[in-house]
């Protein structure tokens, strides 16, 4: 990735993680790791967000919440699953209230492994997500042209 074409904003939601990945996501935003140097800001409003960071697995109760947040985000959007629980359920896979990874609820573009995912890995995932976002944006523009809007 030669240059970043956008300053993407993040939306973070904790599915049913143990908190470990959540505090690592927050640690990414603070001085030592500082993803804000890429122009990335953590926002609480889904309508402002381009990248959706989800930590933790999906259960029946938060499935609707995750879906609703995803639907509220404007196109194009990228979903990053942070931590092994968000990828496939991880250590909680056998627990009765876990359906599985985030991809059981919404389409996921980037998977970040780790328990807990290290901030370096999260940043790597976010940077990868920027690449995906770029591609999606191009496709989005072309689709618009074809429609003649």
């Amino acid at each position: 990735m030669a240059k970043i074409t956008k300053s993407p904003w993040l939306l973070h939601y904790d599915g049913s993680s143990c908190n470990g990945c959540d505090i690592e996501v927050l640690a990414c935003l603070t001085p030592v790791y500082d993803v804000e140097r890429f122009g990335i800001i953590n926002t609480g409003n889904p309508k402002h967000a381009d990248i959706f960071l989800v930590t933790g697995g999906i259960n029946e109760k938060n499935k609707a919440v995750v879906k609703q947040l995803y639907d509220q985000m404007p196109e194009p959007k990228v979903v990053v699953a942070v931590g092994i629980c968000a990828c496939n359920g991880g250590v909680f896979k056998d627990a009765y209230n876990i359906i599985g990874g985030v991809d059981k609820a919404i389409p996921v573009d980037v998977y970040v492994p780790g328990c807990a995912a290290r901030p370096e890995a999260i940043i790597d995932g976010v940077v990868k997500a920027l690449g995906v976002l770029d591609e999606k944006q191009k496709a989005f523009k072309e689709a618009k042209k074809k429609k003649g809007v």
């Binding site: 259960n59 029946e60 109760k61 009765y96 209230n97």
Partner: peptide, 10 residues
Amino acid sequence: LYDIAVETPF
């Protein structure tokens, strides 16, 4: 309280 999807009680 927890609103669990699977059948409770266990």
